[in-house]
Design a protein around this nucleic acid. Sequence first.
DNA 1: CTGTTAGCGCTTTCAT
DNA 2: ATGAAAGCGCTAACAG
Lengths: 300, 300
Amino acid sequence: VLAAVDALSYRPSSIARGLATNRTLTIGLVVPDIANPFFPEIAKGAEEAARAAGYSLLLCNTTEDPEREAQILANLEEKWVDGLVLCSSRLPDAVLGQFLARHRAAILVNRPLPVAEMPPDLPVVSVQVDDALGARLAVAHLVGQGRRRIAFLAGPPASYSGRARRDGYAAGLAAAGLALDPGLSLPCAPVLAGGIEAASRLLAARPDLEAFLCFNDLVAVGALQVLASAGRQVPQDVAVIGADDISLAALVTPALTTVRVVQHEIGARAVEALLRLVHGDDTGRATVMLRPELVVRQSA
Amino acid sequence: VLAAVDALSYRPSSIARGLATNRTLTIGLVVPDIANPFFPEIAKGAEEAARAAGYSLLLCNTTEDPEREAQILANLEEKWVDGLVLCSSRLPDAVLGQFLARHRAAILVNRPLPVAEMPPDLPVVSVQVDDALGARLAVAHLVGQGRRRIAFLAGPPASYSGRARRDGYAAGLAAAGLALDPGLSLPCAPVLAGGIEAASRLLAARPDLEAFLCFNDLVAVGALQVLASAGRQVPQDVAVIGADDISLAALVTPALTTVRVVQHEIGARAVEALLRLVHGDDTGRATVMLRPELVVRQSA
DNA sequence: CTGTTAGCGCTTTCAT
DNA sequence: ATGAAAGCGCTAACAG
């Protein structure tokens, strides 16, 4: 028999097995934009953890579009994925809750659990980074250098990370006894162009600002470019701090001071937690909070 | 009936459908390293094209490990994927041919068809970039600036792109009437660290070199760093040209002159071609050759 | 403990 | 035309 198996190079069909067992050994990974340097490293960590446990990843890209995200989530139901790793969901709590309820298990990355909107026994855990803490660390660093007029390039209003970073920014200022000046904050798209646009507008409106705290490193690089073309020295005239520590951060000039987020670990921890839910080793409802770390380079 | 469908929010099971129809509407995307900035954009292009046609992507990361790649290819068989997009395969022709034969259809990205090793009717097409042309353009640009001692950071010896670029490098030198100096070439890992190591070794051995032509942009950034810490001005003392034009290339200082490869299009063209094979609209055995383009920035 | 069979949820073929 | 049934390749629950 085994000889025949070998001779015909028979492979068990995981699709038939899936139908019979109700398990596909596949998990859905949905990200807003795989081309955004924040996500590939998460995907890598997730893929490695998944493969180590015999699982495969279905990669879905929402293009930052909530409608597309909803379609994808619905599509993933039909695929019978064993679980879901959902990164930076932009869906409102109520909608998200509905979709989650139709899945067997899920991990939310960078987004708190929509507790009020979920069936009470749904196995979901949230993997987050303490973005508020990160922003506080960054503000404290700037304040420690004597900077007071600290601008905030806030990222997308719908981003939970953005909101947390905003809270940390406010808390950091408060801790230093500084007033929060609404004129120093501006939302922006989480990409280079967003940083360029927001930084130029802010710099034009408030030429006296002393630092940019940025939603992420891409935005920070945008700010760097704006400052360079405005002839402002970094960090002497204006300091810049990014967030995430994507590989780019160390390579630009001046090298970016940033709040490091361990993307690879996020991905790995997310699927590990997911598989614990899937296997029933854990019942969910938890939040894994990762600690960010300030990486001081040249820009601040 | 339709009311019930809605009330119970029934979804057809694509897994049962897959078993019945022998088609899963899923294609396998295998890349050496999704965290390498060259691949996420390919993945994005592929995902978009796939989703537009109703297909999903199974993402597989080989970690640049041929053994892992073989496992993954075998695993993908069991998953009954409708087709395969295989990027930068590091498998020997014979082995690759075996694996391909066990799939319904495949696209090879950045790798020529192992024609001698494939069943003659297998639907496979290769999507490549004319790397030799790219290297020739780069050499011509350098020569046009009067540079003669042009070093080549060649990338991994097993890389087909690397070999093509080497050929183009040699051809470019020949076209300019320059001799190929073996002491000016060095293989390297296709990442920043590889560039740093190879560039320092080459610079130490041949301090008179006038330019670095690099396997990819990451390697080129490594070379940039080595030159900066050696106190050599770029491009005045030494010019540097990268390859691929990843987003990083425009953001480093000095901005990198590079040979642009349209990654997004590679991904999109690859799955479009694949779906044509899958649907029988095309019988395969072709090579889609994309033209690279020299993007002149500051480093050369 | 091994061998048989029903059934997973669909599609497709075949009768009605 | 619409409806019943067979079967995709496996697993799990059964009987021997």
